[in-house]
Design a protein around this nucleic acid. Structure first.
Lengths: 362, 362
DNA sequence: CTGAAAGCGCTAACAA
DNA sequence: TTGTTAGCGCTTTCAG
């Protein structure tokens, strides 16, 4: 196909009868050039199909205008939604997003970070708190701009922009408690290397223990982070134990909507009706969660807002040196139909009074 | 935070007591350097936290090792799955993926392409056949490597790597016909600017007309490409027309699983049982489609394979000049529970005989 | 408003 | 095996 190499700025310059400096000017600061000269140059650019060499420009301006992110996988709507918002916000500011995955953990995150750094991203976004110490150290030593997403932790030395997963865990548990649930079964994705899930888990447990005493331990089951494993787990449980598979529990608390949806579908298939027989609650608020039967009560994670905030924070830092500070984003509990109020006045009233002193009233 | 500027290759060289060429060698072809020197250099690199400037390298080697893709949005699992596979395959070959979205068409694709070209991607991936003529012309003029994904069309002058959406439309329609369906209602996402949907649509219509005569026209409804619009459409139809909302149709053919899922959920909510009362068939084979009630019969699009093929084709072209040729990928119909066989021997047998001559038998 | 020339930081001949 | 040096193609002073 291609024979002739691409035209460079000098070809353009000579064809337009001006200097390369002028060509560069019409490209980057057109108002500093007389309209006629500019026009001549534009013609030459057009004629030669000139595309400025981005590497040369980047080398000269020391700015690649690209930002990298490493996620476990793109096959997850929560990440997809976040990335979508991030990409949009970055694009508005003329930055590009380079995405990299660890293939669900199969490749070390630090390796992917090196790759991104080597191709010249100016900043990095890493979801979660849990990263290789060496990686974090590397980032600090090499003075690379980065922010941890999907989490908020002001105590930590890294900038975090996200939500408080622990608090959300408590919030969800509290909601269940306020609806009279005591025997709650937790269903979660893998905990290892996923601090967000872990924090939610811990939040749930702590909240339940606060209400039901320190010896209280909810049942829990760790599944894959997908609909299939949840579906199969519920299915198998019912096949095995029959009617009383979940008889000890009044609610299934799923740490992710993809799991909750698998649960809902399997329960339905098996004739267990939600929320009459069993309540289900999720995390993420996927698009579909509004339309399941019954619709799913879940936590709406502010991933779109998070994408915007991160883009803004990073760009301000890169361009104006604004310090990167942590942002806490609010996540709302979306109350729909999948949780029943199984009555429990004492607990209910205890919850309604939210200040610490109220606990002394019982 | 940062005061001291990053170390360059000369600092490393002088600290290691060697020349910059040697440093470059240990970085890029370690075996061409004596182990001792290499070690000295590595130490210096370590000590100075040296990160080679990617722009300088790219300028020198004229290779950015990055490939760009423009998609409408990331919030769609079909794209997400494709991107995931693409990214993995690219990463294996040491290329990076820069993703860019048109925000569901809000921004001109050609603009996003310019952005990608300006930051130096070496190749582009554009889904579908339908692109601005000027854009395609630009790509050809400027001699940028690109491939059209998610489609296959050997007649066209552009390299396409994907599936034959028209043929798939026919395949799905044929399946329905073979199960005795005649009154079929099509439910699709937006047709404008989406040649893939359009081709499927056309394939369905052509196949049906082949069986039921040229005057046959299936009912059809265009919806948004999401679960919500499908759900709401079905819901509203039933609210409005009651029992006979879909009484003319025996099957709902959805050109996308996200739509099929909304349909399934709404039908279920309204007490219409699939497939006894109405059959439903989809396109995409999302993870969840296997677990819906009933499970969804759908077309499994080979997006993972497509990602691999594209990565391979592009990299071979860039590195060895291998010509880019179109690849046709096979997409399988996954038969599950959502389509009933409503009997129709004549049609059934007509279908089973697949060669053209069989049509003369009627 | 325009041009000459000095980099930007690395790679790759070429020479030693 | 190692060093010298000339680019890579653009941006950006600094003069004019």
């Amino acid at each position: 196909m291609s024979k002739h190499k691409r035209a460079g700025i000098r070809q353009v310059a000579s064809l337009a009868g001006v200097s390369v400096a002028t060509v560069s000017r019409v490209l980057n600061m057109p108002d500093k050039v007389s309209p006629e000269t500019a026009e001549k140059v534009r013609l030459a650019v057009e004629q030669l199909n000139f595309i400025p060499n981005s590497s040369a420009r980047a080398l000269s301006t020391r700015s690649t205008r690209s930002i990298g992110i490493v996620v476990p996988t793109l096959e997850n709507l929560v990440y997809a939604k976040f990335l979508d918002a991030l990409e949009s916000s970055l694009a508005e500011r003329n930055y590009n997003l380079v995405v990299s995955t660890t293939r669900k953990g199969a490749i070390a995150e630090s390796l992917r970070v090196r790759d991104l750094v080597n191709i010249g991203v100016e900043a990095l976004i890493l979801p979660g708190l849990n990263h290789d110490a060496e990686l974090l150290d590397y980032l600090r030593r090499t003075d690379i701009t980065y922010v941890l997403s999907s989490v908020y932790d002001e105590a930590i030395e890294h900038p975090t922009i996200g939500y408080d997963n622990y608090a959300l865990g408590r919030k969800v548990a509290r909601y269940l408690v306020s609806h009279g649930h005591r025997n709650i079964q937790l269903l979660s994705g893998p905990l290892e290397n996923n601090d967000r899930t872990m924090m939610r888990f811990q939040g749930v447990v702590d909240e339940l223990q606060q209400h039901y005493g320190p010896e209280y331990q909810p049942q829990s089951q760790i599944l894959g982070l997908n609909t299939q494993s949840a579906y199969e787990y519920v299915w198998a449980s019912i096949e095995e134990k029959g009617e009383q598979a979940f008889s000890e529990a009044t609610a299934l608390l799923c740490l992710s909507d993809v799991i909750a949806i698998g649960v809902l579908l399997a329960l339905e298939k098996k004739g267990i009706v939600v929320p009459q027989d069993l309540s289900v609650i999720g995390f993420d608020n996927l698009e579909i969660s509004e339309f399941t039967n019954p619709s799913l009560t879940t936590v709406d994670l502010p991933v779109t807002e998070m994408g915007k905030r991160i883009a803004q924070a990073l760009v301000c830092h890169l361009e104006q040196g604004t310090p990167l500070i942590s942002h806490l984003l609010d996540a709302e509990l979306i109350i729909r139909e999948s949780v029943a109020d199984i009555g429990n006045d004492r607990v209910g009233s205890r919850i309604r009074n939210h200040d610490p002193s109220s606990r002394d009233h019982r």
